[in-house]
């Protein structure tokens, strides 16, 4: 009886049983609870560490300080390191976009059905292997007398050594390989959303392919490029595995410096302060870019 009553009541007035926001909250709760636990709280702890003199483990009694944030001023060589990391981020992101966008277009325009699934699988395949394994495979390819060197010498026996392990190029190759799939996938999703009739309309109006690409496809694929760029740029400037293993002597980035603060120097406060400084730099870069993008979007809207 008691069980039947609410069922009957809800049958009478189903739309008003729950306010809309309750459902929204209920659906979002697991996500936000998880994010609070796994991201927000650790981040708060790190923020606290960054203003302490010592990491508060064991029986140490740390004091509050802002000295950790002054490290860029006191040790100006870190500015060069930060600039190296940003350059690495821009270069890797640009290369990912240059390679990823054509690949995404090939998937959208040139392939369909079974072929598309196969190509998709090939793009996602690297995700199935451990990142460290992928990087170590690159060391075998790129080193002197490695696979690349052997291939070059098989074609031109007199060529100089093509081993490029322990260089900036090696780091960029490793990073592009690691983050390219993100760019392809985000661009592909943006391209899928483009209505084919838009392209047909442009062609029927006499536009050639370069014009269609520049005036129709590119503006519509910008959101995909932007999310791909964010997914690439942020991890790249914090990367430490690729620079360390593929970079050798030249592999010093903000990622490796921050890692050293945590694992080698045991200076968590300074590591945390460096991380938050880089976070601020990244947010500033995105704020600038999103401002520029919004303005150009507004201009495009106004002109159309």
């Amino acid at each position: 009886m008691t069980a039947a009553t609410p069922a009957g009541a809800s049958a009478k007035a189903p739309p008003r049983a729950l306010p809309g926001w309750v459902a929204t909250v209920a659906l979002l709760l697991p996500t936000y609870a998880w994010l609070t636990l796994a991201v927000f709280l650790p981040l708060c702890a790190m923020l606290l560490f960054s203003v302490l003199t010592k990491a508060p483990f064991g029986n140490v009694h740390p004091q509050l300080t802002t000295a950790n944030y002054m490290v860029f001023v006191r040790q100006p060589y870190l500015l060069d390191v930060a600039w190296t990391s940003l350059k690495l981020g821009f270069l890797t992101t640009a290369l990912c976009a240059l390679i990823g966008l054509p690949a995404a277009m090939a998937l959208k325009l040139g392939a369909s059905g079974r072929l598309r699934s196969v190509l998709f699988l090939l793009i996602i395949l690297p995700f199935w292997t451990n990142g460290l394994v992928r990087i170590f495979s690159w060391t075998m390819v790129l080193r002197e007398d490695g696979f690349l060197d052997m291939a070059v010498h098989a074609i031109i026996p007199s060529a100089p050594s093509a081993g490029i392990l322990f260089s900036q190029s090696a780091i960029v190759i490793g990073l592009v390989h690691g983050y390219l799939p993100y760019m392809i996938l985000t661009c592909f999703i943006s391209l899928l959303a483009i209505d084919d009739s838009l392209i047909e309309a442009a062609r029927s109006l006499g536009a050639r392919w370069p014009v269609i690409f520049l005036r129709v496809i590119l503006p519509l694929v910008v959101p995909g490029l932007v999310s791909g760029a964010i997914l690439t740029f942020v991890p790249v400037i914090g990367s430490f595995m690729e620079p360390r293993i593929l970079g050798g002597r030249v592999g010093v980035t903000m990622g490796t410096v921050i890692e050293d603060q945590f694992t080698a120097a045991f200076n968590w406060p300074r590591g945390a302060a460096l991380s938050f400084t880089m976070l601020a730099v990244v947010l500033a870069i995105f704020a600038t870019f999103s401002g520029v993008l919004r303005q150009s979007a507004a201009r495009a809207d106004a002109s159309s």
Partner: peptide
């Protein structure tokens, strides 16, 4: 120890340039 860590970190950055 802090001086040693800082000097090595700075030296590594110098090697990387």
């Amino acid at each position: 120890r802090q001086k040693i860590n800082d000097l090595w970190e700075e030296t590594k950055a110098f090697y990387a340039q």
